[in-house]
């Protein structure tokens, strides 16, 4: 167990101007190797212009069971969406 390489999460910028998106993970002994491996595994078909790697243990995440309490309250706040407000067509796009 002790000699296992750590897990890295891989983020790729698909094209210039876009943000990096999570594409998957891989094992590597250090950040340099993780980037090299990510390049080989995740960009073989020209999928990216930039790579970020982050060691998986550094990512803090929400618990799946917390989905309800975290995200349901926004369902009742429909007024946060522009379509909640009826704006007459005559005044143009708003």
């Amino acid at each position: 167990m002790k000699n296992e390489w750590p897990l890295w999460e891989v983020f790729i910028r698909g094209q210039h101007g876009m943000s990096h998106r999570h594409v998957g993970s891989l094992h590597a002994p250090d950040a340099d190797m993780a980037i090299k491996n990510a390049r080989d595994v995740y960009t073989r078909r020209n999928e990216g212009v930039s790579i970020w790697v982050v060691e998986a243990r550094h990512i803090a995440a929400t618990a799946p069971g917390d989905k309800g309490p975290l995200f349901e309250p926004s369902e009742s706040k429909v007024y946060r969406h522009p379509t909640f407000f009826d704006i007459p067509d005559e005044v143009g796009h708003m």
Binding site: G17, M18, S19, Y79, P82, F84, F85, I87, V91, M94
Partner: peptide, 21 residues
Amino acid sequence: YSRAMIRICKEESFHARQGYH
């Protein structure tokens, strides 16, 4: 900056419309 603007613009439409309303 561009990506921040894109995100902000999506939310601003609500602001203008609630004001006009």
